[in-house]
Simulated assay, not measured.
Amino acid sequence: MPLDRRRLLAAATTTLLAPAAARAQAPAGWRPSRPIRAIVPFAAGGPTDLLTRMLAEPVGAALGQPLVVENRTGAGGAIGAELVAKAPPDGHTILVHDSAHAVAPALVARLPFDPVTDFSGIGVLVFAPLVLSVNPRVPARSLDELLALLRANPGRFNMATSGVGGPVHIAAEILRTAANVQMEMVHYRGGAPAATAIVGGEAQMTILSIAASLEFIRAGTMRPIVLTVRERHPLLPDVPTSAEAGLPNFFYENWRAALAPAATPPAALAALSAAFQAGLRQIEPRLREVAEQPRPGFDTSAAVMAFIRREMENYTAVLRAAGVRPE
């Protein structure tokens, strides 16, 4: 089991065993009248699923009703998102999704929902930095050295991605534009196969989350080059940020958000947001272990949806420039 899944599963188990005194207190105002369905549009055991399960106990305790996680997979998350978009807007069905929610319009020509207008925001829950790493046989130990190598050998080095339109692909396209370099994109079915390709020498570079990369970096089978965010991370304190390495426009981070159907009453959104924020505070020490961090300022519906709209526009522009068209 990959490192991020092991740690998140352990953290989820610890959270479920937390004493009642440490659990979030119920917010005032709206209260659910029955269990809340939390739709995760990915398979069980992935990072979005495990985050939701970690939060289920404290959020349910805060609201006075269980938060029941349901995995509705398929179409890159669109099946689960459509279910929530068309659910009654009463606060009892929510979606926990990642940045793929904002990527969907760039990939799917006829989405059965609008990622912005068909949803109301509960909160952007966590942000996850990525790290650009190479196979240790690549003769580059810094971003400058890697970019010089790419420019001297245009198109001869492979970038292993987790799939078309996934976080690695988007980050790689941002790198290609920001640094004006060429590399071959090799799309795998997820981050784990991409990591395996790097370790085995099938590809030379990838840009995975810290959690997905850390065990390989510690084992010496991946060499970290640069972080894709503004600040260094305590799990990789010696790895510079892209700005420190001289390429500040190479910025990308994955995120996970909770959403409700459009027209959900403001009182329900406020209560749900308060419960999720309380839950995040409870599990934050464990989130640090897998390099996923909450950030203030994304806990009102307007702020969440404005953020997703910006992300959707940015991702669409990046993928259009790369020649990706919706199908």
Rank of each mutant, 00 (worst) to 15 (best):
A171V: 07
A172W: 05
E173Y: 02
E173C: 02
I174Q: 00
I174C: 03
R176H: 00
T177N: 13
T177C: 13
T177W: 12
T177D: 15
N180I: 10
V181T: 05
V181W: 05
V181Q: 06
Q182E: 15
Q182S: 15
Q182P: 09
Q182I: 12
Q182Y: 04
M183F: 13
V186K: 04
R189E: 15
G190L: 02
G190Y: 00
G190I: 01
G191D: 09
G191L: 10
A192M: 12
A192F: 14
A192D: 12
P193S: 02
P193F: 01
P193R: 00
P193W: 01
A194Q: 02
A194T: 00
A194L: 02
A195Y: 09
T196I: 12
T196Q: 15
A197N: 00
A197E: 00
A197Q: 02
I198K: 01
I198N: 04
V199W: 09
G200W: 00
G201M: 00
G201W: 00
G201T: 06
G201C: 07
E202V: 13
E202P: 02
A203Y: 02
A203G: 05
L208H: 14
L208M: 14
L208T: 15
A211F: 06
L214W: 07
E215A: 10
E215Q: 07
E215F: 04
F216Q: 14
I217A: 07
R218I: 10
R218V: 11
R218E: 15
A219H: 09
G220C: 01
G220T: 06
G220P: 01
G220D: 04
T221L: 01
R223D: 13
P224F: 08
P224G: 07
I225M: 06
I225W: 01
I225C: 03
T228Q: 02
V229A: 13
R230A: 15
R230K: 14
E231M: 10
E231P: 11
R232L: 03
H233A: 10
P234W: 11
P234G: 07
L235T: 12
L235H: 09
L235F: 10
L236N: 08
L236C: 08
P237E: 05
P237F: 09
P237H: 03
P240N: 04
P240D: 03
A243D: 12
E244I: 10
A245M: 05
A245P: 04
G246N: 02
G246S: 05
G246W: 08
P248S: 02
P248A: 01
P248Y: 00
P248W: 00
N249S: 15
N249M: 14
F250G: 09
F250E: 04
F251A: 14
E253N: 06
W255N: 12
R256P: 08
A257I: 10
A257G: 10
A258H: 08
L259E: 06
L259W: 11
A260S: 01
P261I: 08
P261R: 06
A262P: 10
A263I: 11
P265V: 12
P265F: 13
P266K: 07
A267Q: 12
A267L: 03
A268P: 08
A268H: 05
A268C: 07
A270P: 13
A270L: 12
